[in-house]
Nucleic acid binder design. Structure first.
Lengths: 224, 224
DNA sequence: CACCAATTCCGAATATTATTCGCTTTTTAT
DNA sequence: ATAAAAAGCGAATAATATTCGGAATTGGTG
């Protein structure tokens, strides 16, 4: 059980509880549910056509409401699209937070985090398409909540690498940022090729060996 | 000097000479030059605003021509954007082809390829922004030339890893695709964070250690 | 040099699609 | 039962990519 004051744990806890949507929550129950349905419909359409090419008319039809009603919930197409990654990323962080507590070493936790990331994408491919192919690399995102939600991913990995070094699980000479770049880059690249080409064919089976190979790099302090 | 029939060399040679633009080359000299100027102007505007948000009016102004004239050269905004990566990627492959010949081992060649990729992005940041942040991950690209140009990157690395294993430079048990994913993912992720946040601050200085750490993984057959 | 045909160039329509507006219907609270 | 608030919608509006028709420019040829 990690102690309360591990920096990585504090970071993770904050990431699992993102600042709420600043737009006022709809008053009526019906409407709050509609808002979620609309988000789900938008996720499907945006994943199918890409954010830029997707038409609001298609989103409206998928959600079963009028086009102009969309604007009662979200101020623009962009805002609608950018709302998508935040909730599910927070779910991932939260689920990891629960499961990580049971593991004794940072090595195991780091491996779990990478594995859960891949599994999460595999289980929510529409969401993953939007996140990894459109939103993550987007130059255009200025909205702070989205930026933070995505950036937290890197921060969590860096903090875990630091903590593992502090505990002596691997060499303290490994540059944490460089190592985090390798871990994140490898996993996201695997996911991107899977989303684009369905290679590897069996993502679930490929994730284990990938994580092993990456963790092996940490264990042996390669490249120093 | 590699022998003529190395598969990786054949692949690289083809990649360095992409199939030409299928649209007819303009007849007049003036026009051929305009076409290049237009592409350069579009690169700047698209890198600044993103492809989706960039206005054809801005591209036209930057190029010093009328909006409608753009359509005399490229059939659509998309086609204009997608033409950008192809030429420079081919330049990169070609430059690597020249320099690789002087190196004795696949290990050195692979390291050079990764290094040159990072340098190429650093020297052409506008182009790199478009390629790595917008075009590479795009769901939407159906045009075969662009797809191939980008996919060649992965194919070249896989082929080099295979050739190195064949020569006994590293263990034949390393899965080439998985290892290629790690190499590509790490380098492109480093470039993406540099393009988005200018981290690492000094990309040129960070590239060497990154490549060393990655090559160390190959040398020692980590993760098996 | 003068002319023609091909090419290049452009301003003004056209089409598509995100967004706004004003009104109607539904819900909630008293 | 009623009024106020909220949610919903069809019809304008606006921004902008693309098309069109003709004017200007160029390169070749007698």
């Amino acid at each position: 059980m990690p102690t309360r004051d591990d920096p990585w744990l504090a970071l993770l806890t904050r990431a699992a509880n993102p600042s709420p949507d600043p737009s006022p929550d709809p008053k009526q129950q019906r409407s709050r549910q509609r808002k979620q349905e609309l988000l789900a419909a938008a996720t499907r359409i945006f994943a199918r056509d890409g954010i830029a090419k997707a038409k609001m008319a298609d989103v409206a039809k998928e959600a079963g409401i009028a086009v102009s009603s969309i604007y009662d919930y979200y101020p623009s197409k962009e805002a609608l699209a950018y709302e998508i990654p935040i909730q599910r990323l927070a779910q991932l962080y939260d689920a990891f937070l629960q499961q990580a507590a049971a593991l004794p070493t940072m090595r195991d936790r780091l491996a779990l985090f990478l594995t859960m990331t891949a599994d999460h994408a595999r289980e929510n491919p529409d969401w993953a398409r939007l996140l990894y192919l459109e939103i993550w690399p987007s130059v255009l995102i200025e909205e702070a909540r989205v930026r933070r939600s995505v950036d937290d991913f890197g921060r969590i990995i860096v903090a875990m690498i630091r903590e593992g070094a502090r505990r002596g699980e691997w060499s303290a000479d490994l540059d944490p940022h460089r190592t985090a770049t390798i871990l994140m880059g490898s996993i996201t690249h695997m996911l991107i090729t899977w989303l684009l080409y369905r290679r590897p064919h069996d993502l679930a089976a490929a994730t284990g060996p990938m994580v092993d190979q990456l963790m092996g790099m940490l264990d042996r302090g390669v490249g120093l």
